[in-house]
């Protein structure tokens, strides 16, 4: 689909990436592919930056430490904020450096986004693995390709995880954290790079399976 191209949603509900003309017709906003689900119709762009949405789990990098907040870069046009009360630690104002300093990565959830796109994130939600990411490697992919990396119900990422004995955390914003033995991390990140470049093609799962098989010799099966 090209920007401005007409779309007939039919019975489906238009969701992301569709623009509604004043006369009620729908057109594509992006240069990307059309994706029809059971209920919704989306246009998935090939590229573009991430825009925080409430509830998204993202990986962010601490950029600045303030008296009561951290400023976090989540690879979006806008910086986001993490308030000290939204962390699982007993923080005291003015002493935030002890917990997180600039350069640290965190896995957090977008709590709130307002009209002028200011957003707040939180680490204080049990059971979904929100935390500071210690060690590991960070890689970055375009945010629109994240669903492809995850696959249906996480099938794609689990395949990479199982085959390479790595721990992987994917943020909706396109940052990916990989932890494991160095040689395994290399294979995992190459596999993810492959998914990224061929994200719009068919038969992707088969090609990735093939690729992981071919790399089996390089993987150190020593789980930590």
């Amino acid at each position: 689909m090209f920007p401005g191209e007409d779309i007939e949603p039919g019975d489906l509900k238009p969701r992301n990436g569709l623009h509604r003309d004043p006369d009620g017709k729908y057109t594509s906003q992006y240069f990307g592919v059309i994706q029809k689900g059971d209920e919704y119709i989306d246009i998935v762009p090939f590229s573009g930056s991430y825009f925080p949405r409430r509830g998204d789990k993202v990986i962010g990098k601490i950029m600045d430490v303030g008296p009561s907040m951290w400023t976090v870069d989540i690879k979006s046009p806008y910086m986001t904020m993490l308030h000290m009360n939204d962390t699982p630690w007993r923080t005291i104002s003015g002493d935030l450096k002890k917990f997180l300093t600039s350069g640290d990565y965190i896995y957090a959830r977008v709590m709130n986004v307002n009209e002028i796109k200011e957003s707040w994130i939180t680490l204080k939600e049990p059971g979904i693995g929100l935390r500071k990411l210690e060690g590991g490697h960070i890689m970055s992919i375009p945010a629109p390709k994240v669903p492809r990396i995850i696959g249906k119900n996480g099938s794609m990422v689990n395949m990479v995880k199982d085959a390479t004995f790595t721990r992987i955390v994917i943020g909706q914003n396109g940052l990916i954290w990989i932890d494991g033995l160095p040689e395994n991390v290399i294979v995992a990140s190459e596999a993810i790079g492959l998914i990224e470049t061929e994200a719009h093609a068919t038969g992707l799962t088969d090609r990735i399976t093939e690729y992981l098989k071919s790399k089996k010799g390089e993987i150190n099966g020593n789980t930590q």
Partner: peptide
């Protein structure tokens, strides 16, 4: 702009 993934109403 289109290849940068910026939303547009038309080209």
């Amino acid at each position: 702009l289109a290849s940068a993934g910026i939303p547009m109403r038309d080209m």
